[in-house]
Design a protein around this nucleic acid. Structure first.
Length: 604
RNA sequence: GCGCUCAUAGCUCAGGGGAUAGAGCAACUGCCUUCUAAGCAGUAGGUCGAAGGUUCGAUUCCUUCUGGGCGCGCCA
């Protein structure tokens, strides 16, 4: 826990070996220090008291590169110095006495970096780090558990789960890239009335059939019986009672019911695991609610003893959270049976015993915000210090262009169907471009393109916002999409492969001063910024930042690639340096795309 | 009703206390004898939901309002 506190930025911090990365941050800090010192000098010169550091605004990037690479707005100092920001800028420029790098534009003091020197520094770093470019240590020493997916066992995954899975997998990878020790966990909701409903329908109408005999993916097979139950219950008012009976028999451990429950859960989980495999989602540990749902009970009872909870007349256990601006909540029924929150309390404590995390991130839809506020508060009142570091990564609903997904109207988009549809479209596209021969495995390439389309679309939107998922747009191969980013990566990779037949300057002798174009410098800057973007994305649990940065680089590179010769440039020094820059961009994509759960492709 | 959350181009979304607010899609127009055209470029499209406030400066922060979403079960 001390690790993140000690990482507070001191301007003079050098490049330590365990934190090689934020090159741009270093040079910015160096300049900020120079400007601060100049401001102090100016204060002395004018005999005024000025708390420079307090007033100093964050350095920013000028709107265009002609102005420079770094800008210091001087408005805040006008009052203390009793002169206009314009005049202050002029004075600072004089004091800094560095016309090569410093310029004044109205109220801004602008800094121009030494391009060849920075280019050399950054491209060396990037190309040394290669596909691990951007990885840092901003979260090193942190043990972070990430819970996500958490499917029910009565039906297959749908589009909403895919957003959850993409967020959970991506955030986990980002935290890992920031140096954290990450454990990805799932919680299978395998008990309760929903699974009993599937069981009931199966018992009454499908006994003896199996996914194999029905020729159906096993989770869909179970889901079919859940749908069938809805049909039964529609005109049989006693169906809910029969489902409840099944649940009671399950709780009593009736061997027949248990056997069926195990069988149907196995079918569902096997099917869902296949979906995880298709979507490159993985877990380090899987918890089952049937194992954990009773474990919260003891904790709650000890909370009663400790006086943090109380019993009502019926014997149910309550917590009064009104002093924390929350309500009174029941934690345990009078008959001692568990509620949703009972189970979550037990699960959290069990997990911390299993693996002592510093933080636990729950990736769960925003509709459960209140639930998590209560859960966190309850755990705090039970005296668990780690409860201060629980975080609900809440995400908004996924809607369709036609409106909300509604199970009653059958508009829920099934995960497997969607993936199959995307894969088919990708395959058609590969065929129509005549690129079958370039792909060693067309089906696998199609799958990766489908994943690129899906995950990028889901992650380019800020997690906390509701979003509209347009299947047609997501699989589009033009515009701001996953396949576009993959395509840029594949094109560079192809070029790099071909460059082996080209006469080049050896890496150690590269002189980057031949990279004179503004686009080249801009690309280098963006490459240099990536470690900071990763660190920020980790700190905010926000993959959108990575998606945006990668797209910006890819788009800029595409234009550069279109407008200028790279490995076919006639000048050996130029083509060598441009290739090194291109390799840097490839490294960025190779490192960055997996952070948003988009596979990098060498060819497509 | 109370609470949380969102509101930026026709549509889908980025951005974010500072110098002319950005992409993609859709529309129109150019560019393949050239490193993968799954591409690149151009045109057009915005009082950043409204009103106050804080500030040298607000689209960004605060308050209120309006509109959408979600929540307010001894359901999960």
């Amino acid at each position: 826990m001390a690790a993140q506190l000690s990482s507070a930025c001191l301007p003079q911090r050098g490049l330590s070996s365990d934190n090689a990365g934020p090159l741009m941050t270093d040079i910015k800090n160096t300049w900020a220090r120079k400007v601060i010192n100049a401001l102090y000098a100016l204060a002395t010169e004018r005999s005024v008291e000025c708390p420079v550091e307090d007033l100093m605004p964050a350095a920013e990037t000028p709107p265009n590169r002609q102005l420079g690479d770094l800008a210091f707005p001087l408005f805040p100092f006008a009052k203390v110095f009793r002169s206009s920001p314009q005049v202050i800028a002029q004075d600072l420029s004089r004091l800094l006495d560095d016309d090569e790098h410093v310029s004044v534009a109205g109220p801004y003091l602008n800094i121009r970096f030494d391009r060849p020197a920075e280019t050399k520094r950054i491209l060396r770093e990037v190309n040394t780090a290669a596909e691990s470019w951007g990885r840092g240590a901003s979260m090193s020493g942190q043990r972070i558990m990430v819970e996500f997916s958490c499917p029910n066992t009565n039906k297959p995954l749908h589009l909403g789960h895919l957003r959850n899975d993409a967020l959970g997998e991506s955030v986990s990878r980002i935290l890992q890239a920031a140096g954290a020790d990450v454990r990805q966990v799932n919680l299978i909701n395998n008990r309760g009335i929903h699974i009993c409903q599937s069981m009931l329908a199966y018992l009454e109408r499908g006994k003896g059939t199996t996914p194999e005999s029905a020729g159906r993916k096993s989770d869909h097979f179970v889901g079919d019986w859940y749908v069938e139950y809805q049909k039964i219950a529609k005109d049989d008012t006693e169906a809910p009672q029969r489902a409840s009976d099944l649940l009671r028999r399950w709780e009593q451990g009736d061997p027949d019911v248990m056997a069926l429950w195990k069988q149907m859960n196995e079918w569902t989980i096997t099917g869902i695991d296949q979906t995880y495999e298709m979507t490159d989602i993985h877990f380090d540990a899987v918890y089952y609610e049937s194992d954990t749902y009773k474990s919260g009970r003891q904790e709650i009872l000890s909370g009663v003893d400790a006086g943090v909870f109380y019993r009502d007349g019926d014997g149910a256990v309550w917590v009064d959270l009104e002093d924390a601006d929350l309500d009174k909540k029941v934690l345990l029924r009078a008959d001692g049976t568990s509620l949703y929150i009972t189970q979550d309390i037990g699960t959290a404590i069990t997990r911390h015993r299993d693996w002592e995390f510093d933080r636990l991130v729950y990736v769960v839809a925003s509709e459960q915000r209140y639930h998590f506020q209560v859960l966190f508060e309850v755990l705090k009142r039970l005296g668990y210090a780690w409860a201060e570091n629980l975080f609900h990564l809440s995400y908004g609903m996924v809607n369709l262009p036609s409106g909300r997904m509604k199970s009653r109207e059958g508009t829920v988009v099934d995960a497997d169907d969607l993936i199959a549809q995307l894969m088919q479209l990708a395959k058609t596209e590969i065929e129509s471009k005549g690129r079958i021969e370039d792909s060693s495995d067309v089906d696998e390439t199609s799958r990766k393109i489908a994943l690129g389309a899906l995950h990028y679309y889901l992650l380019m939107v800020n997690p906390n916002k509701d979003m509209v998922f347009d299947p047609a747009e997501s699989i589009s191969f033009t515009g701001n999409t996953g396949p576009y980013l993959q395509y840029v990566g594949a094109r560079i990779s192809s070029m790099i492969r071909k460059s082996s037949q080209t006469d080049l300057v050896s890496d150690s002798e590269l002189d980057y001063s031949v990279l004179e174009l503004d686009e080249e410098w801009e690309l280098v800057r963006l490459l240099g910024e990536f470690p900071r973007v990763v660190a920020q994305a980790a700190a905010e649990y926000n993959p959108t930042l990575i998606a945006g940065h990668l797209y910006e680089v890819a788009k800029l590179y595409s234009r550069y690639y279109h407008d200028h010769r790279i490995v076919t440039h006639e000048d050996k020094a130029v083509r060598s340096c441009r290739l090194a820059l291109s390799k840097g961009v490839a490294s960025l994509l190779r490192s960055g795309l997996p952070l948003i759960a988009v596979p990098f492709l060498d060819s497509m």
